[in-house]
């Protein structure tokens, strides 16, 4: 073992410990914001571990996507969990025993699988440019999957926004979308003066 691989090993274990500890902190802290960003730190450490496995592109993408996702998720967490923004402490766990049992069982099953299953020997060598290899896999052999997943994801986003928004373009532009937009948008009533249906 050379010295630099020792450094990489130490950094990898450091990332792994940070990822697990901050993952556990999600259930220890008493605020939605702290729980969400503890999860974000955990994911960033996971990205760091991927970087150390020389999967640079996957590593940086994990960091990028997870920070973005947690920033948005914090908003949803606060919104749906009914935590008022006055930073009132609230517990981050519910159904305590069931959840603990389920997670322990899952951990033991997955962990024992990882440890007990005989790992295959490496055949062949990794591509010199793993980023390009990943791009080729996605855009060539798995293109059909990506093309199917894309519209499904967009549809999910559009439906999610349409269901959760309180104001739509119909509130600003009228029922036939032909009126001058009001600025600021009207609240609680339609352009033509009628009360909007309750949501």
């Amino acid at each position: 073992m050379t010295d630099s691989s020792l450094v990489v090993d130490l950094a990898f274990w450091g990332c792994a410990v940070v990822a697990v500890v901050f993952g556990a902190l999600v259930f220890v802290v008493d605020s939605m914001a702290r729980a969400t960003y503890a999860l974000a730190v955990s994911f960033v450490a996971t990205g760091g571990a991927l970087l150390l496995m020389q999967q640079s592109y996957l590593g940086v993408i994990v960091v990028l996507m997870m920070v973005m996702e947690m920033a948005v998720m914090a908003v949803y967490m606060v919104m749906f969990m009914g935590m008022n923004p006055a930073l009132m402490p609230m517990s981050m766990v519910h159904s305590h025993r069931t959840a603990l049992g389920a997670s322990l069982v899952t951990f033991v099953v997955l962990g024992s699988g990882a440890v007990l299953v005989p790992w295959p020997e490496r055949r062949g060598a990794p591509s010199p440019d793993v980023t390009e290899a990943l791009g080729r896999a996605i855009m060539e052999s798995h293109m059909l999957v990506m093309m199917a997943v894309g519209p499904v994801m967009v549809a999910t986003i559009v439906v999610g926004v349409a269901l959760s928004t309180a104001r739509t373009r119909y509130d600003r532009l009228g029922d036939d979308l032909d009126q001058t937009p009001t600025d600021p948008p009207l609240r609680g009533e339609t352009q033509r003066g009628g009360r909007r249906r309750d949501r």
Binding site: S56, Y57, M68, M70, P85
Partner: peptide
């Protein structure tokens, strides 16, 4: 070899920071 993606990842970190700045003050 991934400078462009790293630049993007760093500017996304600002999302988290500005929201935390607004949230933390109570």
């Amino acid at each position: 070899s991934l400078g462009v993606v790293w630049a993007n990842a760093l500017d996304v970190v600002v999302w988290a920071l500005v929201w935390l700045l607004g949230w933390g003050a109570n």
